[in-house]
């Protein structure tokens, strides 16, 4: 027998489309819950997995706000990158674990989007060794960048800096969000057990804490292979 939930169920289901409810939730309900149970900003980048193949082809979505948010500022960063592009790309090649990397400017943010293999901090550290000086030239145009320049003398700080600006990756299984929130808050996982009905509230509050995020770990058209495995397979050396 079909269960249409009755008149109350239908009423509740239609609430998100009601203008008055949108106003109420935005200006009253969410602020109230944020006051009552604020969520910490969850760390960026992919999380380590048990299966080795899941630790390959990982995403970095590094968002770096420009100091100068004018067309001139955007042109300056584009020029700084353009002047160093050959060095940058040969340096990325030397790191050996990078599949793809590209730079884009969105809303006065310089974004570095890359796919890499293995441990995040080793990736960033190898990156500094290969092209630290090029990155230094870029970082002087970025908010907060001066604190980590020169990167070769601020390795640990730069790793943390990148981690902080790498987008949080929303879990592929929605309920894993509870465990991530518990861990970030330093409380035992799922004690007491989370009500599944509270997931949407937890999600909304997390999106307040992490306004920019990556939705899941993304699509891959083939299983996890390293950049070196792919190059080796195509006879490109490694």
């Amino acid at each position: 027998m079909a269960d249409d939930g009755g008149w109350l169920g239908r009423f509740v289901d239609r609430l998100p489309d009601q203008g008055w409810f949108k106003f109420l939730s935005t200006h009253v309900v969410v602020p109230f819950w944020w006051w009552r149970e604020p969520k910490p900003k969850l760390p960026g980048g992919p999380r380590m997995a048990v299966q080795p193949g899941e630790n390959l082809q990982r995403m970095m979505n590094l968002i770096m706000p420009l100091k100068d948010k004018t067309p001139v500022g955007r042109a300056t960063i584009a020029m700084a990158l353009g002047q160093n592009l050959d060095t940058l790309y040969s340096g990325l090649d030397n790191v050996g674990t990078i599949h793809f990397a590209r730079f884009i400017i969105v809303e006065n943010n310089l974004c570095m989007i890359s796919t890499y293999d293995g441990d995040f901090s080793s990736y960033v550290r190898d990156f500094i060794v290969s092209i630290g000086s090029v990155f230094d030239a870029i970082l002087v145009h970025i908010e907060g960048g001066d604190a980590v320049v020169p990167t070769k003398e601020h390795v640990e700080a730069f790793v943390d800096w990148v981690h902080d600006r790498d987008l949080f990756q929303w879990p592929d299984f929605a309920t894993d969000l509870f465990a991530l929130q518990d861990e970030a808050m330093g409380v035992p996982a799922d004690r007491p057990p989370h009500e599944i009905a509270s997931l949407s509230r937890a999600a909304v509050l997390q999106m307040k804490a992490n306004p920019n995020l990556s939705l899941g770990s993304g699509f891959r058209s083939y299983p996890g292979f390293s950049a070196a495995q792919i190059r080796s397979k195509f006879g490109e050396g490694w």
């Binding site: 380590m48 080795p52 674990t97 293995g118 080793s122 292979f225 070196a228 490694w238």
Partner: peptide, 15 residues
């Protein structure tokens, strides 16, 4: 992480 449990340094042993 990268060498003992992933074998990232040589494509013949990666994964």
């Amino acid at each position: 992480c990268d060498w003992i449990n992933l074998g990232l340094h040589n494509p013949d042993i990666t994964r």
